[in-house]
Amino acid sequence: MADVLGKVKQVIAEKLQIDADQVTVEAAIVEDLGADSLEQADILFSLEDEFGITADDTDEAEGLKTVGDIVAYLEKKAS
């Protein structure tokens, strides 16, 4: 879903103060975009809040590495 990816790009770019173009589907949040562990959690929680998701499986959320992983996770939870 394009609008999910768009929102994810926007939140990550805002949190990390980077250009939205850098936030590609393949980009790893920590390795490629330079987030630390707290920023990684902050991005995820903000997106969950944005999409109205109540997460019950923290293990699944913690395994998310790339922008694409986050988009897939949000789409699954939101459906």
Partner: peptide
Amino acid sequence: EKGPRRVSPFFIP
């Protein structure tokens, strides 16, 4: 208002 999952990871620091 939103529950424990929404508390910022930056809250403590």
